[in-house]
Design a protein around this nucleic acid. Structure first.
Length: 943
RNA sequence: GGGCGUAUAGCUCAGUGGUAGAGCACUGUAUUGACAUUGCAGGGGUCGGAAGUUCAACUCUUCCUACGCCCACCA
């Protein structure tokens, strides 16, 4: 196949993805191979691909493709999460757009609508993941509401219940008044907002007074509306100001209700007046104080209405004028908060806040302005109300025990390790997990109540009925489970659990690795650890890799409201999926967020183009696909050198991948491909493939050097065996090396590498590849390469670079071909000049090179690894410039040499430093002082 | 209040107990056969600050400063 001169990602991406998917490339049959398994964090069915997904999935795909190439039975489980709240919100919003609402339907009708929505517009992200090139096993795509998944969820719930690890409890929960459901601690986000701090007088009852004669207690609050449900005033037991009134009462303003004054350590004497109002039904601290004061949860006052919304309830305790009000002002309408303040002010019970203006004048305000940390629901976005309800709780502390041990003893390795502390900190202080949600969309809790309120937990109604006994009327719990309860089962429920005889489950659980963003460490990762241990008796994976966030170019968090969101699909359109993927990999260094840098994405698009053109070059020079995995036998220095370099980069890549250093892996293959293969190797073999006509009319024949150049000295001893030719060898090695690049680069840039793989035909004449790159074999380039050969190329490279640099500094045209003399040649120099004269001519542009003294006269002097060439430049060279150049180099070498000399002269260093370090210093010193001598001689030569 | 992270070239980031690298940007230069989405060459950093350990610190320790994140709390 001939490649077009331009490379357009869009065409090849769609074509190859379809081919891989339809041909089963993502999960080749490898029954005997070692399994390698990753489960993909199931995206919400409502979701679409954002830049964070692009990072997360790129990393996983790199690992999966790498392990697949290494011959493993690589399985990447994919699917979607039903995302209870998010999905219900989407569908409800759709109804609202048609002036309709959820409650116009029965629960069953509404759930049908959600399924309809899913069928029509859910799961966009699955198509977008394909555009990124992700090689998941779509043939087994999962959904957390699939029938078998539901069974796993129910079984887990029932088992936990029977083990006493799930229980029903009445306590304060984080209530989201917008979504009208309880949510877990993790779903609450603290935000600091500007608020007010009010001070009130609570009159003491029964004519009691404080020690100082006051007939009231001062309390302060940021939530005055809750005073309607106050049940006590607490003071510190040691606070002498209030000692006389503990056990007495205050009369609550507005309602006139009498509440006790209790002693409790929660009250901080240093803070405010030292007395605090206690509202057990609407504050987590107060709840605890209330319990300590002997108030049963069932007796705690609740001032909100039955829907749990912000309205006041007619609880006979709430005055009429408050009923129907929201908690706070909404849409300009006064709320309970405002009315409480207003009434207290009218009653003269508001203690004003005295503020000083800039001019020093005192001004009275109703309240003190304050920054207040306020809980918000992460989905609904409104202020959370701590609310007293009956909910289902998981004993998370118990379930956390084994995961903590797993991480502690290394059964699970968290990468990077720095996250372990955070993990332990959370797990060791974990609170009961509220798992019930007052929603319709989700896994309905398998609990049935009889009329007396007894609960029966079972897999289905029949079982519950048999527990309850015939004739007992049962009603199923209306609530559904937290979405994370089901996704916690993902590593095994997707593989067939809890059914018996599931070969996939046996082979692929535990999984091998989990990759996730650190933002879901607690939500998902930790809960998978708990459920893995609980259901399977094992950690779900031995390794957890946590990556950071992708941030906007200025370092800020991407968010829709800020309008700084970068769309990964837009980047794919513009630069290709391969470039975006490579960017993600190259920027992914452990424990750090990634800042978006579009220039860099562009750079990796350029890298793809570079590879594309290198392949075009190979094609036009008869370089075919290789037919063996093993490195070809090579005798040419350049070929041996590139084989050695392939081995080198391959081992770098493997060790980077073993450590999950995606950046190191990407950079290794990048540098090798561009800086070694393209910049040097392809240039080194050009003279072999297309020899220049020999200079001076001397014919080729036996005088030719092995790399296609004219040898400086005839070498009649060279033998030519069989049909070996330098050209054949070079084509074979180049084709092999290119193939290795394609394989090694494939996990990072799957599309272009697959395209080029197939563009490269096997054997001259165009027989097609036997198999796709996606299922090719990882390099195993164990080959002997001689140090002499690789040194020779390193020497040529050093010479070339130094000649180019010198020419550039002296203003000599880079293309100028110059004759060179080498008065004192090292063995390496002598043999290299003989073997690789063509490379020296083409790259260093030195020809002829004469071993021996140069004629007297002006010359440029250039060294290559210690061999000092003299390049006469009569009439061209500016002697002063050359002197300056050499002097600069001399100064630099002298500085190095002096520094090393100083170190070597330090007895402490020689005695106490590692012997290798001393040896290295000696070598470096010898090198630099040698260079000093040579440069001095060179300067002397110029006079 | 507790914990974590970051600070290295103009920018974005690697890095190692032995004297600092990449990409981009910048400067100069090259163009008839792989590639201008390119080649070649070059300039540019007292590695946030201070002290300590060490023969040797960008690297280890402590402290400080700045920025960021997580958890808890502020009645």
């Amino acid at each position: 196949m001939t490649l077009d001169t331009t490379f357009s990602p869009a065409d090849i991406e769609a074509r190859w993805y379809k081919h891989w998917e339809t041909s089963g490339g993502f999960r080749p049959e490898r029954p005997d191979a070692e399994p390698f398994t990753i489960v993909n964090p199931p995206p919400n069915v409502t979701g679409s691909l954002h830049i964070g997904h692009a990072l997360d999935n790129t990393l996983q795909d790199i690992v999966i493709r790498y392990e697949r190439l290494r011959g493993k039975d690589a399985l990447w489980v994919v699917g979607m999460d039903h995302a209870g709240i998010a999905t219900q919100m989407v569908v409800e919003r759709q109804l609202e757009e048609r002036q309709d609402k959820r409650t116009n339907y029965t629960r069953e009708q509404f759930i049908d609508k959600v399924w309809e929505w899913k069928a029509e517009s859910g799961g966009q992200i699955t198509h977008q993941l394909r555009r990124l090139g992700c090689s998941m096993d779509w043939s087994r795509e999962q959904f957390t509401m699939d029938e078998h998944f539901t069974k796993a969820v129910l079984k887990t719930f029932v088992d936990l219940y029977n083990d006493g690890l799930i229980y029903r409890d009445k306590r304060l929960v984080n209530w989201d008044p917008k979504l009208k459901t309880a949510i877990s601690d993790l779903e609450v986000e603290q935000q600091t907002i500007a608020g007010s701090f009010w001070h009130f007088k609570y009159p003491l009852g029964d004519g009691v007074t404080l020690a100082d004669g006051r007939d009231y207690i001062e309390v302060a609050t940021t939530r005055p509306e809750t005073m309607l449900a106050d049940m006590a005033v607490a003071v510190h037991p040691d606070d002498e100001r209030y000692a006389s009134v503990v056990g007495k009462h205050v009369v609550l303003p507005i309602t006139g209700r009498r509440v006790p004054i209790v002693a409790d350590e929660h009250a901080d004497p240093e803070l405010g007046s030292g007395a605090v109002k206690i509202t057990p039904g609407h504050d987590f601290n107060d709840f605890e104080v209330g319990k300590r004061a002997g108030i049963a949860a069932g007796d705690m006052l609740n001032m909100l209405d039955g829907s749990g919304d912000v309205c006041q309830t007619a609880d006979s305790l709430v005055p009429d004028e408050f009923i129907g009000l929201h908690r706070f002002k909404r849409d300009g309408v006064k709320g309970a908060r405002e009315l409480v303040v207003e009434q207290l002010k009218e009653l003269g019970l508001l203690i004003p806040h005295i503020a000083k203006t800039k001019k020093g004048e005192e001004v009275e305000h109703d309240a003190e302005p304050r920054q207040i940390a306020t809980p918000f629901g992460d989905r609904g976005g409104v202020v959370i109300e701590p609310w007293l309800t009956d909910q289902w709780y998981v004993n998370a502390a118990k379930l956390a025990e084994k995961p903590i041990k797993d991480v502690r003893d290394g059964t699970i390795e968290i990468v990077p390790k720095s996250w372990e502390k955070t993990f332990f900190n959370w797990m060791e202080n974990i609170q009961p997990w509220c798992v019930s949600r007052q929603l319709w969309w989700g896994h309905r809790i398998p609990a049935w109540f009889d009329e007396a309120g007894n609960v029966f937990v079972a897999m289905n109604e029949e079982e519950a009925q048999s527990q309850a006994g015939d004739g007992v009327v049962l009603t199923r719990d209306e609530d559904v489970l937290d979405t994370w309860f089901s996704s916690a089962l993902w590593p095994f429920a997707t593989l067939g659990w809890p059914e018996d005889g599931q070969p996939l489950l046996e082979k692929h659980f535990p999984n091998n690795l989990l990759i996730s963003g650190f933002d879901i460490l607690f939500f998902w990762d930790a809960r998978m650890m708990m459920m893995g241990q609980y259901n399977m008796g094992e950690a779900p994976w031995p390794r957890l890799y946590l990556h950071g966030l992708v941030r906007a170019a200025d370092g800020s968090k991407m968010s829709k409201s800020k309008g700084n969101v970068v769309d990964p699909l837009g980047l794919i359109d513009q630069y290709g999926a391969d470039a975006l993927r490579f960017f993600m990999a190259a920027m992914e260094s452990q424990g750090r967020d990634i800042k978006m840098d579009e220039k860099r994405v562009e750079g990796y698009r350029n890298f793809a183009t570079k590879l594309w053109n290198a392949t075009r070059f190979c094609q036009s020079n008869g370089i075919d696909a290789s037919t063996t995995l093993k490195a070809p036998i090579a005798r040419l220095a350049a070929n041996q050198w590139i084989i050695g370099e392939v081995q080198q980069v391959c081992s770098e890549l493997e060790s980077a991948m073993a450590d999950l250093r995606f950046d190191a892996a990407a950079n290794a293959i990048y540098q090798f491909t561009w800086s070694k293969f393209c910049d040097w190797y392809l240039e080194l073999i050009k003279p072999v493939l297309t020899p220049l006509p020999p200079a001076g009319g001397v014919g080729g024949g036996p005088e030719q050097s092995e790399d296609g150049g004219a040898a400086p000295t005839p070498n009649p001893s060279r033998e030519r065996e069989g049909d070996w030719t330098p050209q054949l060898e070079t084509r074979e090695v180049a084709g092999w090396a290119l193939d290795q690049i394609l394989v090694m680069l494939h996990p990072f840039m799957p599309f272009i590498t697959e395209e080029l793989w197939h563009a490269q035909a096997t054997y001259r004449g165009g027989e097609k590849r036997q198999y796709d790159l996606i299922t090719a074999s990882w390099p195993n380039p164990r080959a002997e390469v001689s140090k002499e050969a690789t040194d020779a190329i390193d020497w040529v490279i050093d010479l070339t670079t130094n000649v180019r640099s010198a020419k550039n500094e002296l203003g000599i045209p880079p293309g100028a071909k110059l004759a060179a003399f080498l008065p004192e040649a090292s063995d390496l120099a002598a043999s290299t000049i003989e073997r690789s004269s063509a490379a020296i001519e083409r790259l260093a542009r030195l020809t002829p090179v004469t071993l021996g003294e140069a004629p007297a006269g002006p010359a440029m002097q250039v060294s290559a690894m210690g061999d000092m060439f003299v390049i006469p430049l009569e009439g061209i060279i500016d002697i002063d410039a050359e002197k300056a150049r050499l002097e600069k180099a001399l100064a630099s070498s002298e500085k190095e040499a002096r520094s090393l000399e100083g170190r070597l002269g330090n007895a402490n260093f020689v005695e106490r430093a590692k012997p290798e370090a001393v040896e290295k210093a000696r070598e470096d010193f010898a090198h630099h002082s040698g260079e000093v001598e040579r440069l001095k001689a060179a300067l002397e030569r110029l006079g």
